[in-house]
């Protein structure tokens, strides 16, 4: 067990995770599960007792022929990326922010980068998860094969559970070959008008100035698509990072209209209904209200804003609360998570 165990636990194996959770439970205490802190460090409250995955690291098994990799939750994403690249493979889960973001953190938060348009959501890359529930029970769900309907699909449930159901200790991820070619383009054409002209771009992001498009295709196809849609090669867009809002894509237009009245820097993934935002706290508060009006939610990532990370849009449904209680009956795991 790690140093300064009273407030900062650093278990090195699943047994120590079980011990940490069990002890917290017995003490009627609670824990914040944390990876590298690339997201959670920014989330108030920042002073909760922490169970860190910092020493639950390492690539357990990379099976190139099976297109799978098994890693422990605290392993840094860039370490995994480099190892996979040696075999021409990747798992297209992207880092968030500039910190050394971890695999467990990406899965726990389910926050993804622009490539989720083409590559799919974080949840779709998880094949097997090992975790320790809030009751201190170690469990495995899923398997190392790409197709598996054996039992209920708890992999999806654990993805994006924000450390409230269990401590993810190890995951097996699905891999794919690194695309043969990858290039960003840009245009002045609004995203909306581009959609019908492009076949499955890897990412489309519009900033206030331009629409940015990423192709991960055969170079001839990328060139042809770019030429057809009037795209020119460009640098990747820089995304605002204070907050991100999601709404149903069908309601994005209305949400976007509300945003134009606020003093915000915005980058929008049209087809995903996802917006990255920078701005003063009052503008973010207004944006959050707008997102919630449109049935969405806004997550504040920048602690300097002084705003709660989560809003009304994140409030768990009664059914979600029942599931949460089933796996964490004594509220050991981040019971404050959805507070605002």
């Amino acid at each position: 067990m790690g140093v300064n165990a009273a407030t900062h636990l650093e278990p090195t194996d699943i047994g120590e995770v079980i011990d940490a959770v069990t002890q917290a439970r017995e003490r009627s205490s609670a824990l914040e599960v944390r990876g590298a802190g690339s997201v959670l460090d920014r989330l108030p409250p920042g002073d909760a007792p922490v169970l860190s995955t910092a020493r639950l690291t390492g690539i357990v098994d990379h099976a190139p022929a099976d297109l799978t990799v098994t890693v422990r939750a605290g392993t840094r994403l860039d370490e995994v990326r480099d190892r996979l690249a040696e075999h021409g493979q990747e798992c297209p889960i992207e880092p968030i922010g500039e910190h050394g973001t971890t695999v467990g953190g990406r899965l726990g938060t389910a926050l993804a980068g622009p490539r989720q348009l083409g590559a799919g959501r974080v949840r779709d890359w998880l094949l097997r998860v090992r975790f320790v529930t809030g009751a201190g029970t170690p469990a495995t769900a899923g398997g190392v094969t790409v197709k598996d309907v054996t039992g209920f699909d708890l992999c999806r449930l654990m993805t994006g559970s924000w450390g409230t159901l269990g401590v993810i200790t190890e995951v097996t991820l699905k891999l794919r070959p690194i695309p043969p070619h990858r290039a960003w383009y840009a245009t002045d054409t609004p995203q909306h008008d581009l959609a019908s002209q492009l076949y499955r771009p890897a990412a489309v992001v519009s900033t206030s100035e331009r629409t940015h498009v990423l192709f991960e295709d055969h170079p001839d196809d990328a060139d042809a698509q770019a030429a057809g849609a009037g795209l020119v090669p460009a640098d990747p867009p820089v995304l605002p990072a204070s907050a991100r809002a999601v709404v149903d894509p069908a309601r994005l237009a209305a949400f976007r209209a509300d945003l134009t009245e606020l003093d915000l820097t915005v980058a929008i993934h049209d087809q995903l209904g996802l917006c990255h935002l920078d701005g003063q706290p009052d503008a973010l508060v207004a944006a959050r209200a707008a997102a919630e009006r449109h049935g969405g939610a806004l997550l504040v990532l920048d602690p300097s804003t002084g705003l709660p990370a989560f809003g009304r849009g994140h409030a768990p449904s009664p059914l979600a609360q029942r599931v949460s209680t089933a796996l964490d009956p004594d509220d050991v795991l981040a019971p404050w998570r959805w507070q605002r």
């Binding site: 389910a110 926050l111 993804a112 989720q116 959501r121 949840r123 309907v149 209920f152 699909d153 708890l154 992999c155 999806r156 449930l157 993805t159 994006g160 559970s161 409230t164 159901l165 991100r244 999601v246 709404v247 149903d248 894509p249 069908a250 993934h269 995903l272 209904g273 996802l274 969405g296 939610a297 997550l299 989560f310 849009g313 994140h314 409030a315 768990p316 449904s317 059914l319 979600a320 599931v323 949460s324 959805w338």
Partner: peptide
């Protein structure tokens, strides 16, 4: 009827949609 919504790119709250698929 519970609407287990995953129409948004990043779900807010638990992915019960995911559990219900294959139930």
């Amino acid at each position: 009827v519970h609407v287990l919504d995953g129409t948004r790119a990043e779900q807010a709250g638990l992915d019960l949609r995911g559990v219900s698929v294959g139930g």
